[in-house]
């Protein structure tokens, strides 16, 4: 029970911190002081209080999009185990629901983007939907590997307990899987090298261009939803990459938080040292991620 409460509180409160850390890491790399680590929280608070401006083209879809997206992402967060702690809800086949909830979120975000009738937003929506088509198979290959290794059909047993032994027994496949999932993590969260969340050129963006016309509280919901998505998929990655646990609940929660912070720093480092890929290169990278994961599956099925 305590674990479930901590799970929910962490999921609700921690995500913007990750954004803050990523921003700080990038600032340090660039030799700047950078915004305070808590800046994303201030931004959210400010946006929730602000008024909003709507395009006269938009309908209810434009307003419902961010809301459903956030609801779907939060629902998915109930299914993912954080560190070595089981998820509040867990049942056989929950990984399918987990992945499809993000599909629903994507449907809503892209539909809301098209509601403005803007070419830029259409372009961003098209890219988001296209890249997702290639990221999904990589995710499912990885899920199949995890299912096979753990002998179970649910995220909690897949990601807790057995991962550490899997590292010893089939390290190669877990390594490939981790690589593939890291690419998926970066694509799904629109990070460099696939998308640049800080660029100011509409033509080159993916996620940020889709939400150009959102403002005020709804924009806050979008930012928060994106942060939660980073948190949830990041938890999926750290569960695999850093599967160590002591068995003492509180220490394990501490370990998980440290792992997530390390992941945020890692993403910050990647963003600082890598250039953005050309858009045409992105599908190649995603195909590579699929092949890594498929290869990993081949190794465990052998």
């Amino acid at each position: 029970m305590t674990d479930a409460v901590i799970h929910i509180l962490l999921t609700l409160l921690m995500p913007p911190l990750l954004l803050g850390i990523i921003g700080k890491t990038k600032a340090l790399f660039a030799g700047r002081v950078g915004a305070p680590i808590l800046q994303p929280y201030y931004d959210l608070a400010k946006l929730l209080r602000k008024g909003s401006v709507f395009s006269d083209t938009t309908t209810w879809v434009f307003q419902a999009g961010p809301v459903v997206t956030l609801a779907a992402t939060l629902t998915a967060s109930f299914l993912i185990p954080l560190g070595e702690h089981r998820a509040p809800l867990s049942f056989s086949g929950d990984m399918v629901l987990f992945a499809y909830l993000f599909g629903l979120a994507r449907f809503c975000t892209t539909a809301a983007a098209l509601d403005t009738g803007s070419s830029f937003e259409g372009m961003g929506a098209a890219r988001e939907a296209t890249f997702a088509c290639l990221a999904e198979p990589a995710l499912f290959f990885s899920l199949a590997v995890l299912a096979r290794l753990s002998g179970s059909l649910s995220l909690t047993p897949m990601l807790t307990g057995t991962v550490a032994t899997s590292w010893l027994n089939s390290g190669a496949s877990i390594l490939l899987l981790g690589g593939s999932l890291f690419i998926v993590l970066l694509v799904e969260n629109c990070r460099v090298p696939f998308d640049d969340p800080t660029t100011h050129l509409e033509l080159t963006m993916i996620h940020e261009v889709m939400v150009l016309d959102h403002s005020g509280p709804l924009f806050g919901v979008i930012l928060y939803g994106a942060a939660v998505k980073l948190f949830v998929l990041g938890a999926l990655f750290t569960d695999i990459a850093l599967p160590y646990a002591t068995g003492i609940t509180l220490v394990d929660w501490g370990l998980f938080i440290v792992a997530m912070l390390m992941l945020a720093i890692g993403i910050g480092v990647v963003e600082s040292v890598m250039a953005r890929l050309r858009i045409v290169k992105v599908p190649q990278m995603l195909a590579a991620a699929c092949i890594l994961a498929a290869f990993s599956l081949l190794l465990v099925l052998r």
Partner: peptide, 10 residues
């Protein structure tokens, strides 16, 4: 909060 309407960002 106040609420405004304008054209889509072009």
């Amino acid at each position: 909060a106040p609420r405004g309407t304008t054209g889509t960002w072009d």
